[in-house]
Computed example of a mutant assay.
Amino acid sequence: MNDLFNEVFGGTDTSKLTPIEIALGIDNEGRTTATKLYDYLELNPSNYSKWFRKNITENEFAEENVDFYPFVLRYESLTGEKDRQDAKLTASFAKKLSMMQKNKKGDAARNYFVGIENGAKKLVKQIPLTEHPGEVANYLKQMDRRMEKEGIPPYKIAEAFKMVSEQFGIRLPDDFVKVPEYEQMKLSV
Rank of each mutant, 00 (worst) to 15 (best):
Q184A: 09
G25L: 00
I26Y: 02
T18M: 02
K50V: 09
A158W: 05
I56T: 04
N47L: 10
N65Q: 14
E159R: 10
T12H: 03
L123A: 13
Y112A: 04
P70N: 01
F113T: 08
E76H: 09
I56L: 12
N44Y: 03
Q126Y: 13
M143H: 01
V114Q: 13
N28R: 05
K121E: 08
Q142H: 11
N55M: 14
N59L: 06
A34C: 09
E21L: 01
D39T: 15
F161A: 11
P19M: 04
D13T: 04
T57Y: 00
Q142T: 12
S77K: 06
V72T: 11
N44H: 05
G80A: 03
G25P: 09
N59H: 05
E159W: 03
H132W: 07
D107C: 02
V66S: 11
L187H: 09
K149S: 10
M143P: 02
I20R: 04
T12S: 05
Y139D: 07
E117G: 07
R84A: 03
P70Q: 06
D3T: 12
L37M: 01
D144T: 15
N2P: 12
Y69R: 06
G134Y: 08
R146H: 08
S46W: 03
N55L: 02
M143G: 04
R145S: 11
N138I: 10
P45S: 09
L172Y: 10
R31P: 00
Y155M: 01
I56S: 02
I22R: 08
Y112I: 06
L37P: 03
L37W: 01
L89A: 02
V189K: 15
T90Y: 04
K36S: 15
L17P: 00
A34H: 10
L172W: 10
A91K: 07
N55V: 00
F5T: 14
S92D: 13
H132T: 13
G151A: 09
L4V: 15
P128C: 12
V177S: 09
G151R: 14
A34K: 00
S98I: 03
Q142N: 15
L24D: 11
F113R: 04
R31S: 01
E29F: 01
D174F: 03
M147C: 03
Y40F: 15
I56N: 05
Y75H: 10
M100C: 03
K36P: 02
P133T: 11
T130V: 13
M143V: 06
K95Q: 14
V164S: 09
S77C: 08
Y38S: 00
L4Y: 09
N138T: 01
N103F: 01
Q85K: 04
D86N: 07
Q184K: 12
E135D: 14
A91Q: 00
E148M: 15
